[in-house]
Design a protein around this nucleic acid. Structure first.
Lengths: 357, 357
DNA sequence: CCGCATTCCGTAAACGTTTACAGACGATGA
DNA sequence: TCATCGTCTGTAAACGTTTACGGAATGCGG
C-alpha cells in the first residue's frame, strides 16, 4: 500500500534538471524573487508536472524557523484547557503556525521535559499552563532557548510573558450576586488548599464575604477535591453541620454538579432553598438541570491572549515581559436566578454540525 | 527578555572544538556508538558544560524522520474528536512521537490542504477524521507521501488504513433496549440525512425497528440538526404530531438534551412517560438530569486503534491496508432505566485534579 | 567599437546533523 | 623487523533548502 509509494519525492534538484536551470533559479522562482518570465514559466511547469512540494524540514534548517508552536498543559480533557486550545489553534493557524500539543498528565517532570526540549528547536515558541511553578521551572524558563508564554500565576519578577485569570474578582462577583439575592449563609465547597486554585479561591471567598459585611464562619467551609463525587460528599457533610445554609459557592463546576446531586437527594430545592454557583463555566454548566450559574474565568480569552503574545514575540517583539490579566464574568443561570428556565437554553458550543461516524 | 537570550546554542561543532575531537566522534558518542572511553568522557563533559541539546530539525533532515504525527479533525470542541485525541496523544507520546494538531473547522478545502501538506514532510504520518470523503480526498490519499489512517467510513476499495464505528449495531442496541422496556412508539430525532452519520443512523433506526417487529412509521421521524436547540424544536414538533410517542432515539447527545428540555416543559416525565436515548456518550450525558442513557460509539477506542495502526505503519509495516471496526456499547442511565438514580453518579472523567487558575 | 550599468543566472557555502570510508595507530604473530 | 589485523578517529559527503557573490549577457551612450 502507501508504504510502497513512499519513493522519494521531487526536490529542487529534480526541478532544476527538468527545467534546465540551476537550483538557485528554482528557489528564486518558488519564492517569488525577481526572475525572467521565461525562467519562471519553465520552473513552474516542471514543478507542476512533478507535483513538487517544498520540504519543510530543509527550509526550517536553513531559515531557523519551524513555524510550529507548542502548547503544553496537564490534560486536554479538562474543559478549561480545552477552551484555551480552541482559541490558540486558530490564532496560530491564521498566522501560519502549526500547533504541537503536549499533554503532561499532571507530571511535573514532563513539564520540565517540555521546557528542556525547546533546545531541540522543533518549535519556535511554547505556550504553557503549568500545574504549579517550581524552582526547576524557573531555572528552565531563564535558560529557555525560545520565547515562552505562561498561562497562570508565576512568582513576582519572573521574566516571562504571562497571562492570568482573576479568581479573586471572580469569587467576589459570585458572592455579591448571592448576597444581592438575599442569601446570608453562604457556604464554600473548595478543592485542596495546597493547589494554586484552591488557595486562591479560598482566600477570595473569605475576602468577598468581608466585602458584603458577612462574617467568616469556618463551619461554612468544606474541603474536598475538584471532582463531582467528592464534591457531593463534601456538600452532604456541610448540610449536616449547617442545615440552614442558603447558598453554595463551589470551586469548580464539577463540585457544583455534585452539590446539585446531593441537594436533590436531600429534598432541597435549587435555587429556592439553596442557590448554587459553580466556577469555570464549562459546557456542563449549561447542560445540567437546573442549569448552573458559574463564574467564567475566561479560559478562552486567556488562550487567545497567550497566542497573541506569542505571535508578537515571534514577529520580533523584543520588549519587556508582558502581563495580561483577564477579567472574570459571572454567568447567571437557573441555579441562582429564580425559577429554572424551561425554554430552550442557549446553544451549547460543544458540538459541531456533524458528529463522528 | 528571552528574545535577547536567543544567542545560537552550542552545536556539535562547538562540542568538537572544546573536546578537541572531530564532529564525527561527537555524533558517535551522542548516539552511543562504540567509542574509546577517554573520548566519551571528553565529549560528555563538553556537552554538559555547554548545555548541549540535539537539533531536531537537522536530525530530521538527515534521517528523514520527524517523529511527529498529525491528527486532523473538524473541531477539537466536539467531544467525540476530543475523546479520540485523548487516546491518540499518549500512545504517540509513549512511542516517541509528537502530535501536531489540525482543526479544519469543517472546511473541506482545509482537509485537502492537510493532505497536500503531507508532501512538506513535516510529519511522518497523518490520522484524519474527514467530514465526508470527496473525490479530491481519494485522489490525495492515493498520492499521499506518508502513511495515513482514516477514522470513519471510506468507499469500498479505498487503499488506506481505516477505523470505523458501527452505528448500525449501536442504534440496534438502543432500540432493543427500549423495546425490552415495553416501548412500542419509538420516535427518532435525527440530523441532516446528507451527512454520513445522519444517513447511517436513520437507516439503522428503520432496520432495528424491523428487527423487533415494529412497523416503520414516517410520522415518528423528525429531522433537525445536531444541536440542542434545534433538537428541542424537532421534539416539540414530533410531540405535537404523535402525542403517544413513548420513547425517543436521538442521533446524538445534544439532541437528547434538547429533548429533555422540551419534555420537561411539556410536563412529560422521563423515563416514565417518554424514555430518551442519546448517542456518543459524551460527558454531557452523565451530567444531565435525569442522566442520559447513550450509545457509545467508542470514540476513545477508535482513537487508540488509529494511533496503533499508525505506529505499525511507521515501524515499517508494509502490508495491505487494514480495517478495524469498533463495537458500540449502550450505557444505560436514568433516562431509560426507571426512576432517576439519586445517589452519586459515576465519576466524570472530564476534570483533573487541578483546574486552571 | 569600447566602457559601463543593468539584469539575470549559476556556483558554492551554509544550516546541524549522520555516516561511509579510509587513514593512523598500537598490538600481535611470524 | 615486518606484515597484518583491529580499534579508533577524522574527512567529507549527504539530507533539501536559501542566499551571497560574481560572471555572462545585454543594452546603451560615447
Amino acid at each position: 500500500m502507501k508504504g510502497t509509494t513512499l519513493a522519494d519525492g521531487p526536490t529542487i534538484n529534480t526541478i532544476a534538471e527538468r527545467a534546465g536551470v540551476s537550483i538557485a533559479s528554482v528557489s528564486r522562482v518558488l519564492n517569488g524573487l525577481p526572475t525572467r518570465q521565461e525562467t519562471v514559466r519553465k520552473v513552474m511547469a516542471a514543478a507542476d508536472e512533478l507535483g513538487y512540494v517544498r520540504n519543510a524540514v530543509a527550509r526550517s534548517l536553513k531559515s531557523r524557523r519551524t513555524h510550529q508552536v507548542a502548547f503544553a498543559m496537564a490534560d486536554v480533557g479538562n474543559p478549561a484547557y480545552l477552551a484555551m486550545l480552541r482559541q490558540i489553534q486558530p490564532v496560530l493557524k491564521d498566522a501560519g503556525y502549526r500547533l504541537v500539543l503536549h499533554s503532561t498528565d499532571a507530571v511535573v517532570a514532563d513539564e520540565i521535559d517540555v521546557l528542556h526540549s525547546l533546545g531541540e528547536r522543533y518549535v519556535d515558541g511554547l505556550i504553557m499552563v503549568p500545574l504549579r511553578v517550581t524552582e526547576a521551572h524557573l531555572e528552565m524558563l531563564d535558560a529557555a532557548r525560545a520565547p515562552v508564554v505562561i498561562i497562570g500565576q508565576v512568582p513576582e519578577g519572573t521574566r516571562v510573558d504571562n497571562v492570568r485569570a482573576d479568581s479573586r474578582t471572580g469569587v467576589k462577583l459570585a458572592i455579591d450576586h448571592l448576597h444581592a439575592l438575599g442569601r446570608r449563609r453562604i457556604g464554600m465547597i473548595n478543592g485542596p488548599l495546597d493547589t494554586v486554585p484552591g488557595a486562591a479561591r479560598g482566600a477570595a471567598y473569605r475576602e468577598a464575604l468581608g466585602g458584603v459585611g458577612l462574617p467568616y464562619d469556618e463551619d461554612l467551609v468544606q474541603i474536598g477535591d475538584f471532582y463531582r463525587a467528592e464534591g457531593g460528599r463534601a456538600v452532604a457533610e456541610l448540610l449536616d453541620r449547617v442545615p440552614d445554609v442558603d447558598a453554595l459557592m463551589c470551586a469548580n463546576d464539577l463540585i457544583a454538579l455534585g452539590a446539585l446531586d446531593v441537594l436533590r437527594a436531600a429534598g432541597r430545592r435549587v435555587p429556592e432553598d439553596v442557590a448554587v454557583v459553580g466556577m469555570d463555566d464549562t459546557d456542563l454548566a449549561a447542560a445540567s438541570w437546573p442549569s448552573l450559574s458559574s463564574v467564567s474565568l475566561g479560559s478562552a480569552e486567556r488562550g487567545r491572549a497567550a497566542a497573541e503574545l506569542m505571535l508578537e514575540r515571534l514577529q520580533g517583539g523584543d520588549g519587556e515581559p508582558r502581563l495580561v490579566t483577564v477579567a472574570p464574568r459571572l454567568v447567571v443561570r437557573a441555579s441562582t436566578a429564580g425559577a429554572p428556565v424551561a425554554d430552550f437554553p442557549a446553544e451549547s458550543r460543544t458540538d459541531r454540525k456533524e458528529s463522528a461516524e
